[in-house]
């Protein structure tokens, strides 16, 4: 079950099963999307979320925004999407209509068209309401191909807004916890924001990632594992909304590991840090963007957190669901 938490178990599964079977040059980098003929980006993602409707969004806009963002993180402008539905027998039509309506709205906002689709209905109990798979095609309008491999020592690590809103909202929306949910999912399409960044920073924009499953900590661990660089974060600079922080404290969760669906991490050359920040600040989705750390070449492959008191804590890739380590 912990194979979906976005940590090491997921990675091991991907490496063991899929890389083995489908090995080819476009797949190898394990980025969010694949580059085709150097002109287009191509990506697919399946969406499973409980509950289907939550403050700030639903599975429909999540499925559109997630795939749009995967294209955007490759540096591509999304062109069109396909959508596949798996529905459990008896799934209310009204709910389906609500989902498709929000998909359409999200696609409009992101400037993409949903051009093809498919629906399958499975027996009651064989699925949990509604699953959606979206596939996206994007086109490159710039020469820049941001990726983990472009990251360099000295790069600033920028996050486009507060972390953890989506993941915490989902946990609270399940209704098992007695918390007045004062949080809203951050789900949003980041294509426009990325377009602005690419234009403003050009080749100084080295890497873009959306910290979805496993959050900022997991994405940075993936980058440092690829590059054998270190990411050093400053605890005091990491933006977390008070409501999210409060819920994290109650649940005993580190917000660095909580998913976002409308935030990006940008690794930017030091000379372009200010440009990147002012570009982000000028966009409605990047108003709270901030530098949370930087890359160095030592110690290779680690993500470190400078704590408020000057300690250096290792922010490691989680193997599975976190259990306390204190004896």
């Amino acid at each position: 079950l912990c194979h979906g938490a976005g940590g090491k178990a997921t990675q091991t599964l991907i490496e063991a099963v899929f890389l083995d079977a489908f090995d080819n040059p476009a797949l190898a980098p394990l980025a969010d999307g694949a580059v085709i003929a150097d002109t287009h980006a191509f990506t697919t993602d399946s969406y499973v979320v409980t509950p289907l409707f939550f403050p700030g969004g639903d599975i429909g806009d999540l499925a559109v925004n997630g795939t749009v963002n995967d294209l955007a993180m490759c540096g591509a402008r999304p062109v069109c999407l396909s959508a596949g539905f798996i529905l459990e027998e008896g799934f209310p039509v009204a709910d389906l209509r609500r989902i498709t309506t929000s998909m359409a709205a999200a696609a409009r906002t992101a400037g993409v068209h949903i051009v093809t689709g498919d629906t399958k209905v499975v027996q009651r109990g064989k699925a949990d309401g509604c699953y959606i798979t979206t596939t996206g095609l994007g086109a490159f309008h710039h020469d820049i191909r941001p990726g983990a491999r472009m990251a360099r020592p000295g790069d600033a690590v920028i996050v486009s807004g507060p972390v953890g809103d989506h993941g915490i909202t989902i946990m609270l929306a399940r209704g098992e916890l007695d918390i007045e949910a004062d949080t809203v999912s951050d789900t949003a399409a980041l294509a426009g924001l990325v377009d602005d960044l690419l234009t403003a920073c050009g080749p100084h924009l080295h890497t873009l990632r959306d910290p979805t499953r496993g959050g900022v900590a997991t994405v940075l661990n993936e980058i440092t594992a690829t590059t054998q660089l270190a990411a050093v974060l400053d605890e005091d600079t990491i933006p977390v909304r008070p409501a999210v922080r409060g819920a994290c404290e109650l649940l005993g969760i580190d917000p660095l590991y909580v998913a976002c669906e409308g935030r990006l991490l940008a690794l930017v050359a030091p000379e372009a840090t200010q440009t990147a920040l002012s570009t982000l600040h000028a966009h409605p989705l990047g108003q709270d963007a901030t530098v949370i750390g930087h890359l160095t070449d030592d110690p290779p492959g680690l993500v470190l957190l400078r704590t408020t008191f000057g300690g250096t804590r290792i922010v490691d890739l989680l193997v599975g669901d976190p259990l306390p380590r204190i004896c």
Binding site: E176, L177, D178, L250
Partner: peptide
């Protein structure tokens, strides 16, 4: 203020191993 929240947490094994 937090007592009932923690009691609710007790019922969710995912957050209360």
């Amino acid at each position: 203020a937090d007592w009932d929240r923690v009691r609710a947490l007790l019922k969710t094994p995912a957050h209360s191993p």
